[in-house]
Amino acid sequence: MRFHTRKWVKPEDLNPNGTLFGGRLLEWIDEEAALYSIIQLENQKTVTKFISEIDFQSSAVQGDIIEIGIEVVKFGKASLTLKCEVRNKMTRKTIISVDRIVMVSLDENGQAKPHGKTEVEYVKNRLAED
């Protein structure tokens, strides 16, 4: 799994227990999945369709640095299925894992749009082809 993004847990990210608010973490995961999918599918009209059950395994506190990892599980006709792990950057302890996040590529009318992708592409390789 490749860990693309790091977040610093700040006071505004905490719940009343003094740990990272789960809703904030899910917001970060959804944003990371969207950005990853938009880049992979080369379509800014890519949306979250489904997030499987999540498994909170540990918590984070103020000052922790967490990192969000995304991995492609499969390419569908108009979708991209990802899995995600968030871990503490310093201890490598898993905070949360999500088995499936399904992102869908849309056309200008908001309908599923086939993307024609079958494997992970890296931007540096796309740029080299031009």
Rank of each mutant, 00 (worst) to 15 (best):
T5D: 08
K7I: 12
K7D: 05
E12F: 09
L14H: 05
L14P: 01
N15W: 10
P16Y: 10
G18P: 10
T19S: 10
F21I: 04
G23E: 09
L26R: 05
I29S: 01
D30P: 00
E32H: 13
A33N: 04
L35C: 11
Y36A: 05
I38T: 13
Q40D: 11
V47K: 01
K49Y: 07
K49R: 15
D55S: 14
D55E: 15
Q57L: 15
V61T: 15
Q62K: 14
I65M: 13
I65F: 14
I66S: 01
E67K: 14
I68T: 10
V73H: 04
S79N: 07
T81D: 12
E85I: 14
E85S: 02
V86D: 01
R87A: 10
N88W: 08
M90A: 11
M90W: 04
T91G: 04
R92V: 09
R92L: 13
K93T: 15
I95C: 00
I95E: 00
I95F: 01
I96P: 00
I96F: 03
I96L: 12
V98Y: 00
D99H: 07
D99L: 03
V102K: 04
V104W: 01
L106D: 06
G110V: 11
G110C: 06
T118A: 10
E119P: 05
V120R: 11
E121C: 04
V123M: 09
K124C: 05
R126D: 01
L127C: 02
A128D: 10
E129S: 15
E129I: 12
